[in-house]
Design a protein around this nucleic acid. Structure first.
Lengths: 235, 235
DNA sequence: AGTCAAATATGACGAATATCATGTTTTAGG
DNA sequence: CCTAAAACATGATATTCGTCATATTTGACT
């Protein structure tokens, strides 16, 4: 466990109303506040590992995190990207199992650890939080099923385009209109579910076709309609 | 909506203790019983359609059901198989969205419809049921993420073998030791995420290699260790 | 500033798997 | 029992995509 850092008060947390605690009353928030442990992680650090026992959930205050599983041949598959306001590690806690994925920071991060017993006690007492959790889980599940369908049916080129759109939706744009996340080509490949070389080639193609603009890990969308068309999505 | 049929009482339901209501007290069960609507569907009928509004959840009393999404080119992807004791349609209800999948019976089925308000009211009042729901959702999500990883990383041959094992786990064996579900080759393909012809070929290969025995839609596993090895799973 | 490792890039090649075509078998319905 | 449609089967071919090889560039750390 990381050493405690400057305690971020939930009630002042900028992500409070986008999080699972959005509907929660102030006294419950104070209760969480009293028992959580805030820590910080530097870019590239591991918060928890696939296969280890779950002792609580992490609420992200600042930074970006990838959740990945190892395939049979040791290849990483990124199954989720998390941002401030999201919580991670709840699946294992709720199913009473070990972590099914590894959480790695993509940024310097501040996260608040809520121990198992506290989280469970709150779910027991607070139907609104339980309901929000179910909503989150339902949405995640719908997204996962859609991803399964696309992985099974769409060609890689479309999936790469789709992933660029997904990254934009998830992390937004920075001041220069670049997608606000720096992933290696390998990480993008592990998100798309394809080989690294294939991803590199397709990104270069999109670049040549003036759909996106590349500068190192920075990606800027310069022809959104064409990108959407390339992704073959109409909703 | 189907006409009401013989009312199956929850408290006498054979699946009661495998279902989400396993931890529920009798008076709550009586409450559900009073308001639910039992109906029956013949093989091949649609219980609900992707894109339509969710008005409640269905609890399966008897029969087998597939949940499938349509891909962009109109191809079916089976995202879940349900059996007695399972509930379906909860995702849409919880996320407040429309059904993201279509539910089609694979058998003659008896299902109990629990209207939205009743289900919501019960979740509000009963923390144990809420908690069971979260458990179910968490497990589904873990399975979905594992499926994503395998779809992205494993060759079709392994996935077909894996799917046969999955079908056995889900529906068990009949009196003649056949896997207790009759799917068309196309449906198996839509579960695996591959072309129908490829599935046909691979099943024939497994047959020739004495891993399975085929008789129409009946599949019998005759060399389980080899099937597990072919699926390339070691857990 | 210099060095080394990691990341990016690109070509050549081959394997896996989708697609197309066509024929056979099974099944459901009258 | 007969017929049509659906499901199954199999071969030939096309194509996507992964793998391997090899540069080149970038970035992190003395």
């Amino acid at each position: 466990m990381k050493p405690t850092v400057d305690h971020v008060e939930c009630k002042n947390c900028s992500t409070r109303f986008q999080s699972v605690f959005c509907k929660t009353e102030n006294d419950r928030i104070t209760e969480i506040d009293a028992e959580k442990i805030c820590s910080s992680f530097k870019k590239g650090e591991t918060i928890f590992k696939e296969g280890s026992y779950a002792s609580g959930v992490y609420c992200i205050n600042a930074g970006k995190i990838k959740l990945s599983m190892l395939g049979d041949e040791g290849k990483e598959q990124i199954v989720r990207l998390a941002k401030p306001g999201d919580i991670i590690g709840y699946k294992a806690l709720l199913s009473g199992d070990r972590y099914s994925a590894t959480a790695t920071t993509l940024d310097d991060c501040n996260v608040c650890f809520i121990p198992r017993e506290i989280f469970m006690r709150i779910l027991q007492k607070d139907a609104a939080i339980s309901f929000e959790m179910m909503k989150i889980l339902s949405n995640e599940l719908r997204n996962a099923e859609e991803k399964i369908t696309h992985l099974a049916q769409k060609p890689v080129r479309e999936r790469v385009a789709e992933t660029i759109l997904f990254l934009k939706e998830t992390y937004g744009l920075d001041a220069e209109k670049n997608i606000n996340i720096a992933l290696t080509r390998e990480e993008i490949a592990n998100l798309v579910g394809t080989a690294t070389e294939t991803t590199i080639r397709l990104l270069s193609e999109f670049n040549k076709e003036k759909i996106i603009e590349l500068a190192g890990k920075k990606i800027k969308i310069i022809n959104l309609p064409k990108l959407i068309k390339t992704a073959n999505i109409y909703d």
